Amino acid sequence: MSAVTRLGLIGGVLTTSAALAGLSTLPAVRDTLTKHLGPNGVKHTWRLLALLVALLNLKNLPGFWHIRVLRGIIYQLYFQPHPQQPKHLFAPMITSSYNTPYDTDYNFHKSNSTYFADLDVARAHYMGCIIRTGLARLNKGDEQGLPKDTTEAGGKYFVALGSISCFFHKQIEPLQRFEIFTRVLSWDRKWLYVVSHIVKHGAVRPESYALQPWRKRKARRQGKGGEQEGDAQDLSKVIFATSVARYVFKKGRKTINPEVVLERSRLLPPRPDGVDLPPRTEGTPSDATPAPAETPSADDSWTWDDMEKERLRGLKIATHFDALSAAQHELRASEALGQYGDYW
């Protein structure tokens, strides 16, 4: 629903809020509140309302974004008890959150800009998980087989976010809960591509949890038409937004091939003899839609060829995203419409 069609609702909320605030200042109203709530009843009422607002918007309070991101990184780096297996390289990690009143815009749904803060938290968990072993081994000197210019480069190994995009499919209502499914999409000689899907809470039910084996499989819900939510053909109905991000690995100023880090993290099947680092076969943009993602089999038959097939399938999508970097050359500086401040 557009902002124009909601002007009546917005005006009604503002009018009601102003009326309640005005009524609380009237002597008769204050006397009534004092009679029933005590001498400090009015003061306590406002304090309780302020506390309620703070609790509803807890994740938006100053400093809480840092707590949420650092908690994800620290837990995955130091407290995650189970190692990830190569066959689960493309499996998603799920984080959950909700749309706070602070995140809600004048259209009364989640503001586009606030998606990125929640995606930061989801990717902090995920990236902390998949690279914790690889970066630790590299920084401790496990550089066997790396080029000489890499081993001689100064500085520590680290990862940095290169870019991010977000496609909005359905609106998220005030206080509505949602889940973010984040996983590796693909990688090439420079970038590791990560895809995140923001979906309706509880609509997609994994059959198992590789890093949390104590979680039991949950029965899938029945949709309005009798179909099971989470079936492959119905997933698009429960996706609120889709995001693609790309990461680069560095040693000082030297760029490191993502596959080096993934191998050091023990997330790749055994490399066949004679197979070098990417590019082996680079993806090229095309109009063809890649085949839907498939979940690897539950047995231990996940091979290098299986991994490479999935990497190349995802790379067909990633190259379209990568091509958008050409937009940096579209800045026009000779003539502008005007210049305006943020507040005045």
Rank of each mutant, 00 (worst) to 15 (best):
A160M: 09
Y126F: 15
R137V: 13
L49P: 01
H197Q: 12
R183P: 01
A18D: 01
N99G: 13
E259R: 08
N257S: 12
D342R: 07
D31M: 12
T289W: 07
L49F: 12
Q228I: 07
I172D: 04
M127L: 15
G128E: 07
V260Y: 04
A203T: 10
Q80W: 00
T16G: 13
Y193A: 05
V53N: 10
G202M: 03
Y126W: 13
L48G: 08
A333P: 00
W344Y: 11
N40G: 14
S301C: 05
V204F: 14
T15Q: 08
Q80K: 01
Q339E: 15
Q212K: 01
T16Y: 13
Q233F: 09
A153S: 15
P279A: 14
T114C: 10
A18Q: 14
K200C: 08
L262Y: 10
D287K: 11
P62N: 12
T281G: 05
H320T: 08
V195Q: 12
G223A: 07
E173Y: 08
L161G: 10
L61H: 07
A18N: 07
H125G: 03
L312H: 04
W191T: 12
R217G: 01
L161V: 10
D276G: 09
A203S: 15
R71P: 01
R253A: 15
A54Y: 03
G145Q: 11
L211S: 01
Q222H: 07
H201W: 05
F167G: 06
I198F: 07
P81K: 00
A232D: 15
K190H: 06
H82G: 01
Q76E: 09
R217N: 07
C129I: 03
G8L: 05
H197F: 00
S196K: 03
T242F: 02
P292T: 11
K140I: 05
G154D: 13
R217F: 01
S17H: 08
Q171N: 11
D342P: 00
G252N: 06
D105T: 15
Y115D: 02
L277H: 02
V195E: 07
P206M: 03
N112F: 14
A122C: 01
D231E: 08
E335D: 13
G230A: 09
F90H: 13
D149H: 08
A323T: 13
A323E: 07
L55C: 15
S186Q: 03
K59Y: 08
I198E: 09
T151N: 04
S325F: 00
F90Q: 04
K251M: 05
Q212M: 04
I239K: 10
I94K: 00
L267M: 11
L331W: 01
P206K: 06
P174K: 14
G38D: 15
S163T: 12
P269E: 14
V4N: 09
R189W: 07
R332Y: 00
R123L: 02
L277D: 10
K140L: 06
G283T: 07
E263S: 11
Y157S: 11
G11Q: 06
G230I: 03
V244S: 01
D120F: 03
S243M: 06
S243D: 04
A210Q: 01
R30Y: 15
K316C: 10
R264N: 05
T16E: 12
Q222G: 13
D188W: 04
S111D: 15
K250S: 11
G338C: 05
G202W: 11
